[in-house]
Design a binder for these strands. Structure first.
Lengths: 198, 198
DNA sequence: GTCTATATTTCGATAGAC
DNA sequence: GTCTATCGAAATATAGAC
């Protein structure tokens, strides 16, 4: 059993003398983001940590298992925001408050979100293969909200556009805002998002 | 030499009795979008066309060469819009007109844009390896505009958010707008984008 | 232009010692 | 927990006939 408390992993500081498992996750996150999941080999992860490949397999059952652990990190960050979409009819106002939270999480954990976006194919395969991910998944609830036939098309489009607006600065700017203060950036993004959905 | 006129490829209708080369590109586009570039093998492409692997290699020098051809298609679609960013200082108004054109292209060629987004890692590697792509590339001009220190941070953020808003309905909706009429969708997206950048 | 057969490389994963 | 050595599968790409 290589499972470990998710919160502890996420709380890992900057890798001073963190556990090997946490260090593997940090390196994998960086490499998966830069080169893609399929473009990164286990050998590469091991080399950067100056350990051997089997050492990784002691901590993770498979390469997919590493990706799954990183997916769970993201899941943990976004679940609180998206839980507001269940149990009540979605309105533009509710959607706006969801995106407000989401903006904060995105800015606090940019690399994880970027890794997830740049490896959607691998993530999809993981969901098809691994049944441990179940269908508690966020993407499904999101897709259902945006396809809700009870909503006017105009509102559905504005929901999708505002969602894109939240991630535009991270996904499409190629690091143009990397050095910018998170609070200031968050304020500007939230203003722009409100202009779409407010 | 397997190079062929780019416009002719893009003009290929729906694959009735199109040339083998064009059919390979169509199948590769679909598979790269669904499963990712690295998650798709040459064997898979060949099997779906009921031809053999070497038949593909007669038309393309390598797997990367197929991806490059698809990249050129996209490049052709977006270049006119982005050429407006050269030779003059970027303003929110110019940016708005660029996104206006881009919205139309995105809706007219959804799959190509989606494939490009879902294979950024492979695309980056292509740019690093293949020097035929040169640095005429769009991504670079885009990044420079969004990082332009002559612009106030607020404007740069709104540029990034509006760019994200254009692609939100395509990238983040999981096909929730697949059946929607392009003209109607375009009108609604442009309205939302104008609220950010207008 | 398309085929069968195969060369070559690389990867994920495991065996077994320490 | 970590190592050396290796297995087996799958992928890209090519040789050579037709």
């Amino acid at each position: 059993m290589t499972q470990v408390d998710v919160a502890a992993e996420a709380a890992d500081p900057s890798g001073a003398d963190a556990s090997t498992r946490a260090k593997i996750l940090d390196v994998a996150l960086a490499l998966f983001t830069e080169q893609g999941f399929d473009g990164t080999s286990m050998r590469e992860i091991a080399a950067r940590l100056r350990i051997s490949k089997p050492a990784i397999y002691y901590h993770f059952a498979s390469k997919d298992d590493i990706l799954l652990a990183l997916h769970m990190r993201l899941h943990q960050f976004v679940r609180p925001a998206f839980e507001r979409l269940t149990g009540q009819a979605v309105t533009l106002e509710i959607w706006g408050s969801v995106l407000d939270d989401l903006t904060g999480q995105m800015l606090a954990h940019r690399t994880i979100f970027l890794m997830h976006e740049r490896n959607q194919a691998a993530m999809d395969k993981l969901h098809r293969t691994d049944h441990a991910v179940e269908h508690d998944d966020i993407s499904e609830r999101l897709r259902r909200a945006l396809a809700d036939p009870a909503l006017p098309l105009r509102d559905r489009v504005r929901m999708a556009c505002s969602l894109g607006a939240v991630f535009g600065p991270l996904f499409m700017a190629g690091g143009a805002f990397d050095g910018v203060d998170g609070a200031q950036l968050g304020s500007l993004v939230r203003d722009a998002v409100r202009d779409v959905v407010g």
